[in-house]
């Protein structure tokens, strides 16, 4: 696949927002004075709706509610008023229309095909990350607000829920990383994703440093695995298999399942137990008078 032209930073978004504001005569929502609501698919399917001043709003994209307006969640005949703060993003989730506050405005999920997801992501210099369920996670500053202003590009939008969604590709980076375009999922077709070895958000719980006797194991934040000690140095990657079992894949291609006890102990097939590396907290005992005093403390002493 031919790599797409790298998309520059937030300049494009600013330009687009400025144009949108100009074309719309600045009649759109005031970002500083509005809260955003976004429904997930289950809530939409169950007929849950957001009412602003008694009027039900279209539910496919984010809904902006001015702070002065009366906002409520309508569930059938039930109506729950919501006190929303300016700038806040609130998710309405599930058939029950549960209210979840503190939603990350920089992440959302679009129910779109690959081209549409990339087009929307590129609009704001954001990243489109394919999810296991076929949708795309959009990650980037002001993702929600961009979706609000460009609903025809965003399509159907849902809040991002980190506990439910798995990312099926490892090639994403911070939008302000100058090399993001070269490594973002725009080029996903060029990466070698193993269907039976899928990095997932659950993996994050295992990132850390571990020890087993004199062996040190580091599971790094990029998905890398490093074992050192006893004259051994081995590298590879770690992931979850299709049964959500932690698996190490060494550089020579061999794979080793790991048994886990919670997230603080990992046990290899030979019974070797790795525990999280203990922190040596400095114990500040009274000073030995035979040890010279630090210059600073000497000077401060008077």
């Amino acid at each position: 696949m031919a790599r797409r032209t790298p998309i520059p930073d937030r300049l494009r978004l600013r330009t687009a927002l400025t144009l949108a504001c100009t074309l719309a005569g600045c009649t759109g929502p005031d970002v500083a004075e509005s809260a955003l609501f976004v429904l997930d698919d289950e809530a939409r399917a169950a007929g849950v709706a957001i009412e602003i001043s008694g009027e039900a709003q279209p539910a496919d994209g984010p809904i902006a509610a001015p702070s002065s307006a009366e906002v409520a969640v309508r569930r059938g005949t039930e109506r729950e008023p919501i006190d929303a703060h300016p700038g806040e993003v609130i998710a309405i989730e599930g058939r029950e229309g549960r209210v979840r506050r503190g939603v990350d405005a920089a992440r959302l999920v679009v129910d779109a095909d690959r081209e549409q997801a990339l087009r929307f992501a590129e609009l704001g210099g954001m990243q489109a990350i394919p999810l296991a369920d076929g949708r795309f996670l959009i990650d980037g500053e002001n993702a929600m607000w961009t979706a609000l202003l460009f609903p025809e590009v965003a399509g159907r939008v849902s809040p991002w829920s980190p506990s439910r969604l798995d990312v099926s590709n490892a090639g994403w980076l911070s939008p302000n990383d100058a090399t993001w375009a070269a490594r973002t999922t725009v080029g996903i077709d060029e990466t070698d994703v193993q269907p039976d070895f899928v990095p997932s958000s659950d993996l994050a719980a295992y990132v850390g440093a571990y020890v087993a006797d004199d062996l040190v194991l580091v599971l790094d934040a990029q998905g890398g695995m490093h074992v050192t000690g006893r004259g051994v140095e081995r590298h590879g990657t770690f992931g979850l298999d299709d049964r959500a079992q932690l698996v190490f894949r060494f550089e020579n291609g061999t794979m080793s399942p790991m048994r886990t006890t919670g997230e603080d102990e990992l046990r290899d097939p030979n019974g070797l137990r790795f525990h999280t590396m203990p922190v040596v907290t400095p114990a500040l005992a009274p000073r030995d008078p035979s040890v010279p005093e630090p210059l600073g403390n000497l000077l401060e002493g008077l």
Partner: peptide, 15 residues
């Protein structure tokens, strides 16, 4: 002039 690291006992000195 001097530096005092918190939690480190001070045993005297010059200023």
């Amino acid at each position: 002039c001097g530096v005092h690291v918190e939690e480190v006992p001070v045993t005297g000195g010059i200023g």
